[in-house]
Write a protein that binds this DNA or RNA. Structure first.
Lengths: 334, 334
DNA sequence: CAAGGTTACGTGGAGCGTAAGGATC
DNA sequence: GATCCTTACGCTCCACGTAACCTTG
């Protein structure tokens, strides 16, 4: 058993049991992989893949167990190389981030642009997904870090670091009946109104839905989407009242949209950076946290990953207090 | 980076940074290890060990991280080989068990003898320790399984499987004042009496101590030990009243000792088999569980380790109900 | 000088790629 | 015949052991 054999094995599994395709992925020849696979099977004494004629038909049950173990081994080997790269100050590599559309579209651009300026040699891969899927992808190991929001406790697995807090805004087209409201918005104002908001608000445990239920009402969604840009578009089209993250408001939205004074109508949200405990953090990944939320010291992240949980993370600032990114454009409220 | 290099690295670390000694452990030559270590350090780009002159003085901080990761890799490589060995029906290997003296001396002999009859090619290594240390050793990875008792919840880490339940017995020399007691023992009978019991009873959270405290008293220990044989010896010598596990009573003790009717004076204990989640169970290790406690199906253990936690383990029988081992010799009570 | 580590050298084996040889659809 | 896996062959490189050398108590 060698690391090469295990790498080939996982590559074959990931290529859908196509050895030829797997060989391209690992920059080797197909006979090379075939032979190493055979050797591994000979050493272990059983078939990792069920053959149908000469091609691979299935992973055997024991083969799947071996592949799972092999993934751990390869991940730890990558970790060792990451430790080495960090120590050498070798700042090249990849950074895969799962997050929601809102974060990817409105929060991350400034931070990632700055990150690329500091570390030109890295490749950043954004994987925007629905609220419900982000952590799943992350836990399946398809990303180095997740950036996700909750109204309350930190998300499940991994080390969660609070980046900033934010509120939802309620947005209507200029000229909408609610646009002229001379007092802070109340929940009753929204009952019965067609709403345009995030897809995740449809879930029964969503905090928006709960807010309505506490007032004895049920929200009436005209249209939902994961994409705040789309939500704004439908609000402009007059489909209803938009409710989405304040980060998604831009200066130019003031032309035709108005953000209503919603105060603490909906519970406050926290955006978290989530790291995998089993993955060594590259220096540039830790730097990203500091670029989004300057109150964080990247070294604290490294310490947290080593299990030395700091007693408590600093209370994260509000989005609009953040220097390089956050503001609720004054023109929108006026 | 190769598996061999990582094996050598860990061997050097385990040999106390003595390459020559490490080489013997891995059945290779010292120059071989020296060279592989150098190659690994060259590839990673930093020193894993701090050199003092030509000999290794210290592990560098990053080196320690690499060693920790390497241990995981090697453990998973062993797991893969274990999967293969199980599947091949290749029943040779080692089985390291951490447990307490009482289990090792009175519970395990019959089961392990039977195990060796079924699997003659295995090597069993018992590591008896104090109650407090067993789980520590186990969690440090120094054993494949732990066998440990608690009065209540399952012990911390790993998958815990209840084997059997048991009670403490109160034992006095024949001729002792309490030996003639014509009614069930009460806690007041023991208050003030010099006691001989397990070392772990000294701990403030011990269930024996708590039982006394609930009666408003404090136990008076004349002598403690981890070793039930020693406790019996000191009871015979007249140092006090013995309190220990019923498993430690043997037929021949009836000659000079008497077990008092203690009923449910002290809380019931459960003996658990604890498995590491991150370690593949060899077939013979699973078999051991069934040999101690026949109500267990070894296949359920495998399933539990795979994370398919069975809703609940069967309520374990009492020790004295177990077929091949448990009985409270009648002569002792009479 | 004893203990422990490094460097040098020759050998055997193993991994790789190229090329040819079956299966299966 | 197209696709995909296996077998065969030759080259290259690398891991290993032996032996000689160096360093430090």
């Amino acid at each position: 058993m060698t690391l090469t054999q295990l790498r080939y094995l996982v590559a074959i599994s990931d290529a859908g049991l196509n050895i030829t395709q797997a060989a391209e992925h690992v920059h080797a020849t197909q006979p090379g992989l075939s032979k190493q696979l055979k050797q591994l099977e000979d050493e272990l004494g059983f078939q990792l893949f069920a053959r149908k004629g000469k091609s691979l038909a299935n992973v055997t049950p024991a083969g799947q167990q071996v592949i799972d173990r092999a993934r751990i081994i390869l991940a730890e080997a990558r970790n060792i190389r990451a430790i080495a790269a960090n120590l050498r100050g070798d700042h090249q590599g990849e950074l895969a981030i799962t997050t929601t559309h809102t974060q990817a579209r409105f929060v991350l651009p400034a931070a990632i642009a700055e990150l690329k300026r500091l570390y030109p040699a890295i490749g950043v891969h954004l994987k925007p997904h629905g609220d419900a899927q982000v952590m799943g992808l992350f836990e399946r190991g398809e990303a180095d870090l997740a950036i996700i929001s909750t109204t309350g406790a930190a998300p499940g697995d991994g080390v969660a670091v609070p980046l900033f807090r934010w509120r939802r805004v309620v947005v209507v087209p200029r000229g909408h009946a609610l646009a002229g409201l001379q007092r802070p918005l109340r929940i009753e104002d929204l009952v019965g109104q067609p709403l345009v908001s995030y897809e995740s608000s449809l879930r029964p445990e969503s905090s928006l839905r709960r807010t309505f239920e506490e007032a004895g009402a049920v929200p009436n969604f005209a249209c939902t989407s994961r994409d705040a840009d789309l939500i704004k578009t439908y609000v402009r089209a007059g489909l209803g009242v938009g409710i989405f993250a304040e980060m998604a408001l831009a200066e130019e939205d003031a032309r035709d949209l108005k953000a209503l004074e919603a105060g603490s109508l909906f519970p406050e949200c926290t955006t978290w950076l989530v790291l995998r405990r089993d993955r060594v953090l590259r220096a540039y990944a830790a730097a990203l946290a500091g670029l989004i939320a300057p109150q964080l010291d990247p070294r604290d992240l490294q310490r947290a990953l080593n299990g030395e949980e700091p007693a408590a993370w600093p209370q994260p600032p509000y989005w609009r207090e953040l220097p390089n990114a956050g503001f609720l454009p004054a023109a929108l409220v006026a």
